[in-house]
């Protein structure tokens, strides 16, 4: 495994879930919970003749960013596409539950200064959602994660990190959308229905899943950043995400709440305006929307490096937030 310092410079897309978990918090502070040493794999895979993973495709644990305890969930796409089954799901759910417990404990012990020690949850998504091999258990686990996210509302921030090869799709696509802050890289992808499924359901005319450029400009980091579905766009290194997390941790919680896209009547009404726009524009391509938001030559944005993109890209203006 790469050292923490090496990880900071390493490409996020090329690191594994454990490396990301280590690299997303302060140097040397990460402690893993239910690590492979505990040997608690999925009990449902062997009957299907599938290989097990001793971490069931997700690394969970705790680290620090400054004084703040950060509960980390880091999914591994190389294990069954990062899909969520009973064990994987329970680890995710419990990470948030423990962060809420930590919140209560910190508040009690430091009633006047708990904000500087406010726990946070960071979820590095790399998943297509429900694991089909244990689909019912995976489905129920998704509902539990959403339930915990609502429990965390107004108490502790839940931050999505999306920069992996697999992206964040299926049921986890709405879990990502339900977090407080979304940080993406250009390589990260966020959505509900994956490209192959759209093609299969709607036909190649509607969506050609083999067209990588189309796939990236529909669900990739740049598009989500323009739409304000991603709050921050960072470069594809572990350090890029870590530094952005440090910045977010400096903000007061009231500011963080403003990054939300959904979670109140006002936000739903704001989103409905966007749905109206979808009808009015009759957009056939995400670039039509980029243009609508004032990007005169949207095709140019596609190949632009991240630094220049951040300088010139015009984003959807929000009434809220």
């Amino acid at each position: 495994m790469l050292s923490w310092d090496e990880l900071q410079k390493a490409k996020f897309t090329e690191t594994n879930a454990r490396e990301r978990a280590f690299g997303l918090v302060d140097k040397g502070t990460f402690t893993e919970f239910v690590s492979p040493r505990d040997r608690m794999p999925s009990p449902h895979l062997p009957v299907l003749g599938e290989a097990i993973g001793y971490d069931d495709g997700v690394v969970t644990g705790i680290g620090l960013i400054g004084k703040r305890p950060v509960f980390v969930v880091s999914q591994e796409g190389r294990f069954i596409g990062g899909a969520v089954g009973e064990v994987h799901g329970a680890k995710m759910v419990q990470a948030i539950k423990l962060a809420l417990k930590a919140y209560e404990d910190v508040k009690e012990k430091y009633p006047d200064s708990y904000e500087e020690r406010l726990p946070a949850v960071v979820i590095s998504f790399e998943t297509g959602g429900v694991r089909l091999h244990e689909s019912n258990a995976g489905l129920l686990a998704h509902a539990e994660v959403m339930d915990q996210i609502q429990d965390a509302r107004g108490k502790i921030p839940i931050i999505a990190v999306i920069g992996s090869k697999v992206g964040c799709f299926g049921g986890m696509g709405f879990v990502g959308a339900a977090t407080d802050v979304v940080i993406m890289s250009e390589q990260g992808r966020l959505g509900l229905t994956g490209p192959e499924v759209i093609e299969q359901e709607m036909g190649k005319d509607e969506f050609d899943a083999s067209n990588k450029a189309l796939v990236f400009r529909t669900t990739g980091g740049k598009h989500k950043y323009i739409m304000q579905d991603a709050n921050f766009l960072v470069k594809d290194t572990v350090g890029g995400f870590y530094q952005q997390l440090q910045e977010v941790m400096k903000l007061p919680f009231a500011e963080i709440e403003k990054f939300r896209r959904i979670g109140s009547k006002e936000l739903v009404e704001e989103q409905l305006e966007l749905v109206k726009l979808a009808v009015e524009l009759g957009a056939k391509d995400s670039m039509d929307v980029w243009k609508y938001y004032g990007n005169e030559d949207p095709a140019k944005l596609v190949d632009m490096g991240p630094e220049e993109f951040l300088k010139v890209a015009k984003r959807r203006e929000r009434k809220l937030g």
């Binding site: 959403m146 996210i149 879990v175 959308a177 229905t193 529909t218 056939k284």
Partner: peptide, 29 residues
Amino acid sequence: GNGPGKTEEIFGMNKATGGYQLALAEARK
């Protein structure tokens, strides 16, 4: 199912289904 489609992905079907779930969770609590 939830709406699959290019328009849905461009504008964010994931937010729509997620938004409804958060509303239900809030009302339940």
